[in-house]
Nucleic acid binder design. Structure first.
Lengths: 212, 212
DNA sequence: CCTTAGGTAAACGCTGGCGTGTACATCGGG
DNA sequence: CCCGATGTACACGCCAGCGTTTACCTAAGG
């Protein structure tokens, strides 16, 4: 991706466009957001918009990529080293509302839903992101010495996606708490923690059981 | 009087339109499906289409209502009397693919995502359906004598919604099995079921796993 | 028979979204 | 001080989608 048309890195047009896309796609849905909306919201001229993104689908893909490479994705949280693996997993369930107070769901689920063809580039990108996420969670669980990390990882990410979707439809920023409670139960079971024991922490130092 | 324009219940035009909407909304997304698409897919003349549904949003709402009142919703499964409460709950996790083999997510989550305004009639309808569903699950769990039925119900429907969303994005009709496994674990915990009393199997029997 | 409700077919006006063309403004570097 | 890369402002061509209009068809029932 080094061959971007940003040799001189102009006045930040591209970045503003991506910020506007992030905001407008979330606020209106992707298909319902027009290129004029993006240009007006950037703000950037339509000509510049099309100079950076030849077609709308390019913008959608760049938008999704921007969420991943920028710090907007939960992927970033999962990689934080200042938190214990358990804390990082549970951070998946913190639904963050927008400045206007409303709650949007997972952008990747949105994108996949609006591009239903499984072979569509957008749908494929969303799927790959979900798989990457799953892999990270699996690794984290393995590191924690959980029983059957693969199965548990599927369950946790399913809870996270469900929480994001329901927080959106119910418009409840705090909805993640239910999924988080379920996740704690399942994690504790798989790591053989005592249910009465509040929180058996053991932050970074856990090393046993894994190959490392 | 005469709210509905179906005095004489013509030759099934309305029903065919709803069937086409069901199919096309799922296949292409709502916003991406045009009224022409619906008319051509019914098949019905555009004039008849607009005679039944004055605007597209009316069609969308009627479509969602059709899923509920017709037998398409999981609500129906939850009300079946030939299944045990536990079986009815677990039936939520059976993702049904379309005849073409692809997997669509929950229509209500889709609709809410494509009508992001929380006060929009469509979004509101979807939210109400989710709340109805939650209430049914809560009642079922209460009937089963589960501990804290309200909290567990939230967790189960979150798992179900997550499973539907992920089955869609991953295009995997069998994806519900992961959520189902988690649901069984949580239900068994809350109902204090004895291991081995039922067929209570659960993936990965060796739970002693970690060194701790 | 004629009435009447429902449906069909094709064209139309209107709006608005996509993507382009053209001419002009700005700014940093040689 | 000019050059070229970048961005702006604005209008345009094109087409598609929404919803309507006009005119005609078909079948059931008095």
């Amino acid at each position: 991706m080094g061959d971007e048309p940003v040799r001189r890195a102009g006045r930040g047009g591209r970045e503003r466009v991506l910020a506007a896309a992030n905001r407008l796609f979330a606020a209106q849905g992707i298909t319902a957001t027009t290129m004029e909306d993006i240009a007006a919201g950037a703000p950037v001229s339509k000509r510049t918009l099309y100079a950076h993104f030849p077609a709308k689908e390019d913008l959608v893909l760049a938008h999704l990529d921007h969420i991943v490479t920028g710090g907007w994705s939960v992927l970033t949280t999962l990689a934080r080293t200042d938190l214990s693996p358990r804390e990082r997993l549970l951070a998946m369930f913190t639904v963050q509302p927008w400045p206007d107070g409303t709650v949007r769901g997972c952008p990747f689920l949105h994108a996949a839903a609006e591009y239903p063809d499984p072979d569509s580039p957008v749908h494929t990108f969303a799927r790959n992101q979900k798989l990457t996420m799953l892999r990270l969670v699996t690794e984290l669980l393995t590191e924690m010495g959980a029983a059957d990390p693969g199965a548990l990882a599927e369950q946790l990410v399913t809870l996270a996606d469900g929480a994001a979707s329901r927080a959106m439809v119910l418009d409840d920023p705090g909805y993640g708490r239910h999924a988080r409670a379920a996740a704690e139960t399942l994690i504790d079971l798989a790591t053989a923690a005592q249910p009465g024991g509040d929180q058996h922490d053991q932050a970074g130092g856990d090393r046993q059981g894994t190959t490392r």
